[in-house]
Each structure stands twice: as C-alpha cells, then as structure tokens.
Design a protein around this nucleic acid. Structure first.
Lengths: 174, 174
DNA sequence: AGCGACCTATTTAGGTCCGATATAGGTCGC
DNA sequence: GCGACCTATATCGGACCTAAATAGGTCGCT
C-alpha cells in the first residue's frame, strides 16, 4: 500500500521507520510472508539483477492483495499489547541495589526521549497525510506522558530499592 | 516472589492481574516453565491431592530461584514493545468506510477506559507497596494520555476515511 | 591507499511462545 | 435443574523471533 518494496526495506519500516513504534516483524516472518503472499496472488515480484549480490526482489501489491488488506482491516482488531521489562523490574525494586534502579530509570528515560525525538522529527519533516499525523501524534502524547511521569516520580521507585548500602559517601567529599 | 502459587494463578496474574498491563504469558509457556524451573532447582513443588481433579501443584521459589531473578533483573533489560492493530489500521483509514473508522475508535476507546478503570480500582483498593503504586501510576498516566488524545483528535482520523458514501441520511429523518 | 565499520539484501535453522483444545468436576445465578 | 462460567493441568501445531551465514559495497578516517 505504501509503494513497491523489497523485504529489506520492509524490515527497515519495522525497525526504524513509521511502523517501529507499534508493530514488530523481522526477517524470519517477512521473507516467508512475501513468498507465501506471492504464491497466493497478493503480490507480484520483479527480480532485478545485481552483480555480486542475490537478485533484488521488488514486490508490488496486486488488486487482490489490496482487497485482502481491506478485509483484514474490517475484521475485529486484537487489543493493544504493551510489554515492558522495565515496568516488570520496577515491581521488584525492593530486591535491587539503589544504583541499579537509578540506572534502569536512566536507561528507560533515555530510550523514551529517543523515541519521542524520532516521532517529532517525523512530524516536523512535513507529513501530508492526516492519518500519519494522527498516528505520530498519538505516539507523541504517550511518550510525553511517560517521560513526564518518570521525571516526576522516579524518586518513588528509587526509594523503594533495597536499603542495603546507603549512599555512603554522603557528606564525605573525595 | 509474590508468594506460593499454582500455574493457574500465575496465568490469572498475566490475564487480569497486576502483570496484565505490561507482560504476557499463557499456559503454553507457564506450565513448561514451571516444570523446567523445578528441574533446575529454582522452584519446589508440593502436590495437593484433590478429588476428581488433577493434583493442585503449588510452587514455591527457592533461594536459588530468588537469586536467579535478581541476576535476571541486573542484566540488561530489553526495550519496551508496544503493539497496536488499532494504530496500524488507522494508518490505512483512507481505504476504509467512515463508519468502520468510527467503530474502531469507539472500540479502542472503550478498551482504554476499561484498562484505566481496572488500574484505578487497584490503586483505590489500598496498595501498601510503593513499587506497585509506581507501576500502577505509570499505567494510569499513559492510559489517560491515550484517552485524552483520542477524544480530542478522533475527528482527524475519521475525516481521513474513504470518502465514498457520505453520511447520506443527513437532514432526512427516517 | 588501506583499513575497519557499517550498509544493502536475502535466506534459513533452531527454538520459544501463543492460541486453542481436551479434560473434568465445582459453583453460582435464575 | 439447567447453563454458564470457574478451577486446574496439560499438550499439540503452528507462528514467530533471534541469530547467523553469505557477500559485496560505501564511507570515513588516517
């Protein structure tokens, strides 16, 4: 739907591109799917010869494929799933050293900020389609809410960390 | 860590309980994991006889298991993953009928509100642990941000729907 | 000019996990 | 008394992810 593409380019869409914020798929599912969908008539494949490399296979959606997508989008959508090892680990903060909890929060915040930056970059580089703006805007507010919460409440989880080894250099400059 | 438990109870934790908002696991992974972890000495298993049913197997974490959890929480955490068919479908709103897009938004909003209600219920029913409050509070702000965005911007995506079949009863009461 | 790091591009093997189902009695509401 | 749903364990098939193999190209640095 988004234009002719190769398996490699589709993978990038999931890894860094538009889809990266709310969908997942990797080579292990993309390439077999392209083969299967071509057999089923959803796609056509044009191999472009390249020297030294395997042929570059450019896939195009057929009218049948377009209809199959429409059908899929009309059938019930499964609920959103959110999976976070950070949140899981937070639940067990009381068995972890204070420094570990701080590092966890720092790492997570850094990732959230990167994500937000990527979204805002995409928004800034002029998006003509309303649907794309809607999707990016959704990601933006969620990321902003996450970051704001973590900045405001990080001391709550940091204080819950295992009380062994208090910050013992306190008041004792090196 | 949360106390002795059966496979069935662990499943509930993922399906409705505390974990349901940020983790996933089903029988297909829980029962084999319990068996494997018992063999590895992470868990002990006490079978309680029941009439007419299979034995109820209550598992307890050993000290070795507790340490293994700590180790796992000290090693690098993989980044959060968010997966949403709703967001995906929104990207293709322009190939869908207007009513379908509205229904999609309604369904998604309803699910978000249910989720938020479940979180706030858990928060209200007195949570003593700070880490639990932190986790629930995180879910709460994210859900609130989602709902607010959808309420404020749903017309953007609804307007992007396929322009065939405009709301044709307009001004013509049945 | 040469080196290393990273990018393009496809494919597949291995293992993990999910979804669904089988089983079987109990409880609760109507 | 009936049906719907809950407790409780277990497993199969299939989908999917992770990781690596392959192989040459480009870019930046020295």
């Amino acid at each position: 739907m988004l234009g002719d593409s190769t398996g490699y380019e589709i993978n990038k869409l999931f890894e860094d591109g538009l889809f990266s914020h709310f969908m997942d798929a990797s080579y292990g599912s993309i390439y077999p799917a392209l083969t299967r969908l071509t057999e089923q008539g959803m796609l056509t494949c044009t191999a472009e010869a390249q020297d030294g490399r395997p042929d570059k296979k450019v896939y195009s959606l057929t009218e049948q494929g377009r209809q199959a997508l429409r059908d899929a989008l009309m059938s019930p959508l499964s609920p959103d799933k959110y999976r976070s090892e950070f949140v899981f680990a937070s639940l067990f903060a009381s068995m972890l050293p204070g420094q570990r909890v701080k590092d966890m929060v720092d790492d997570h915040l850094a990732r959230c900020r990167e994500d937000l930056a990527r979204i805002e970059e995409a928004l800034a580089s002029g998006t003509d389609q309303a649907s794309k703006r809607f999707v990016l805007g959704y990601g933006q507010v969620v990321m902003k809410a996450s970051i704001e919460y973590l900045e405001k409440h990080r001391q709550d989880i940091e204080a819950a960390a295992s009380p062994e080894a208090a910050p013992d250099g306190a008041g004792i400059p090196a």
